[in-house]
Amino acid sequence: MSAKILSLFILNVFTANFILFRFLGMCPFIGVSRQKRPAFFMSLAVIFVMVFSSVITWFLYNYVLLPYHLEYMRTVAFILVIASAVQMIDMVMLKTMPALHRTLGIYLPLITTNCAVLGVTVLNIDMFVNGGRPVPGGFWLAVLQGLFAGLGFMLAMMIMSGIRERLDVVDLPESVKGIPIAFIVASLLSLSFMAFNGL
């Protein structure tokens, strides 16, 4: 089991990193990676929502959609769950952790349309539900995948924002400033991370 968890970790953080290789969550990756602080808090919020939605969608799929043969409702159901989960987290956080809410608050609504969150929940079902039945330990694997995918997101976000902060003080050519150079850097980063293939 621990070997399985380690390989799941390596898969989600390095070899199939959500941003660099699976291209999930590109919009926030490009949009919120200008500076390190926002990038960090955005990633925290994403980790939080990913784990939370992994838990809820797991129960929803295996105990509601599957028994009633509503698998085709997956997309609609999941996106609704994620949207309301985000809304709920937003409200709970506002009441109980106002300081944290001030820093994370503005990112929470953005996460609803972060395809990485919907992506990880759909991926959980694809990977850990086999022929209408969850694989052994599937629930925990799904939750861990939510966590690891979030960590992979955070790794890419932090590297990217560190580099972009540095590029801000460099006299880049006018036509590459901003988003274009971010893509070039992401490409080179993805090129370097190919080293982890086969780990």
């Binding site: 036509s175 274009p180 490409s187 080179l188 993805s190």
Partner: peptide
Amino acid sequence: LPPGALLVLGLLLILKQV
């Protein structure tokens, strides 16, 4: 491969800006 996708889009964006 994935890095190629990022590169082509990046270059296309540069072309657009130019």
